[in-house]
Design a binder for these strands. Structure first.
Length: 423
RNA sequence: GGAGGCAUCGCAUAGUGGCCAAUUGCACAAGAUUGCUAAUCUUGAACCGUUUACGGUUUCGAGGGUUCGAAUCCCUCUGCCUCCGCCA
């Protein structure tokens, strides 16, 4: 959520942000109109309330002085009450419209975010690491995994439907090794590891900015909770409604959780293998910083850097992209994606994503802190993928395959796996 | 699943229809003052309107209702606690 004051004064900037993010910019004019109407009515409502209050105060003084309430005053109070009741429903309706529209206003992208309509507008910032040289035709990860009996999609689909999978034996062990190695790296960097709820309420979804835009891509329970698509939701909403102290910042937290995605916009996309699935495991990091964009940008680079370190540790080649306005979330100000090399596709594919929001999420979630000068400010939030399981697993397996059809275990994961090769 | 209880401005507390635009203690922060690692005093939310100041509104888990007037009474919801039952 943006500050309404800011929207009033910078309507054009916000409208441009809408257009650049492929969202309808008409809501801004609509919002400003509703806001004006709402304020007009607010003045009237407050006048009646003031009248009602002062009338009650007069009666109070009479009663307090031992007198009886004056019938005229009581009658006047009744009249004010009916007048108030006439306009209050309209006012309430406007308030609801106002809030609804406010929640639909996207964040303004940072100055250095490239403007573009879709993924074609993304900019490659750097490409790191060496691609493997195979003197044979590298197999796609799923073929290799099925052959080694560490992945089973046939039975999974029979039991759980499209895009389902079982990881078996060394497949399971390799996944756990990866997740644990990633989490250990974060703990070393001062992050507090957590297990988080994956069923959350609507407030957390709206608060983190996944709703209203992404509502269709989420599953929900018959009791109304939503299955989260990332631990970011529970981590970022952790301090919902609270006021922190500046000395507590930055707050660094990390979670590992199952992630659920309906992938409704991706029918027929990536149907082979396990790079696009409805359920996966992911290590995610979230940071709250002070309300200073320079500080938050330092963290943004640092967090993406941790993902880069993981990829470097794993010996994988990757490229870092600055995502353009048309390919980023409504709430984000700037976003990097990291794409990792997939030999079978001869392509870099998205494996990581790092974003910062300024106070977009914290306003929705009402997370503030008392600054050193005594004032109250909203914290700035960021999040980043540390390791997403089947996709990273697929990358490791494709890059570490041998001519014999076995998979070497990356050196850093060997202590976690207890073996050097999967055969 | 059954019965009962509780929910107050960071924490802890007082308050059972008008003297509550909410008591007291602690914590935190800002300012002032004295000075020596601390004490004392003052202040502390959001929003709207005229705007150096001021006025008004809202705020006692959430939402409704009763009343001239609600933290206080009634209804609904949510969360927590205790006991019983059930299960691991």
């Amino acid at each position: 959520m943006l500050d309404i004051q800011y929207i009033r004064e910078n309507a054009d900037v916000v409208k441009t942000a809408c257009v650049n993010k492929n969202l309808d910019d008409k809501i801004i004019d609509k919002l400003i109109k509703v806001d004006e109407k709402r304020r007009d009515l607010l003045v009237k409502v407050e006048k009646f309330r003031a009248e009602s209050n002062s009338n009650a105060k007069k009666i109070k003084e009479q009663v307090h002085g031992g007198g009886r309430p004056d019938a005229d005053l009581v009658a006047h109070g009744k009249k004010v009450k009916t007048q108030l009741k006439e306009i209050e429903p309209t006012f309430k309706d406007l308030e609801e419209q106002y809030l609804d529209l406010m929640l639909q206003v996207p964040n303004v992208p940072a100055d250095d975010t490239p403007v573009g309509p879709d993924e074609s507008g993304n900019e490659i910032i750097r490409t790191i690491g060496d691609k493997p040289n195979f003197d044979f035709n590298p197999l796609p990860h799923h073929e290799l995994m099925e052959k080694l009996d560490i992945l089973d999609t046939k039975r999974a689909v029979r039991i759980a439907g499209f895009r389902a999978y079982y990881l078996k034996g060394d497949g399971f062990l390799l996944e756990q090794a990866l997740l644990r190695y990633a989490m250990d790296l974060l703990v070393q960097e001062g992050f507090t590891p957590m297990t988080v709820p994956v069923m959350v309420n609507k407030e957390a979804m709206v608060g983190t900015g996944y709703f209203p835009w992404g509502a269709e891509d989420h599953y929900k329970t018959q009791d109304g909770q939503i299955l989260t698509g990332t631990a970011e939701v529970s981590l970022t909403a952790y301090y919902m409604g609270e006021t922190l102290a500046e000395k507590d910042l930055p707050i660094q937290i990390a979670g590992v959780s199952p992630c659920f995605r309906r992938e409704i916009g991706a029918h027929g996309k990536d149907t082979a293998g396990i790079v696009r699935v409805h359920q996966f495991n992911k290590v995610e990091q979230v940071v709250y910083t002070v309300a200073d964009e320079e500080e938050t940008r330092k963290w943004h680079d640092k967090m993406a850097g941790l993902s880069e370190q993981l990829l470097t540790d794993l010996g994988l080649s990757y490229q870092v992209l600055a995502m353009c306005t048309g390919d980023m979330g409504a709430g984000q100000r700037k976003k990097y994606d990291i794409e990792t090399w997939f030999p079978s596709q001869e392509k870099y594919r998205e494996t990581h994503s790092a974003s910062y929001f300024n106070d977009f999420q914290s306003r929705r979630l009402n997370i503030r802190y008392q600054a050193k000068d005594g004032s109250l400010k909203h914290v700035y939030t960021l999040n980043n993928t540390m390791a997403a399981s089947p996709r990273m697993l697929a990358a490791i397996i494709e890059n570490y395959q041998t001519a014999e059809g076995t998979i070497r275990v990356p050196e850093v994961l060997q202590p976690y796996m207890g073996k050097e090769e999967i055969k």
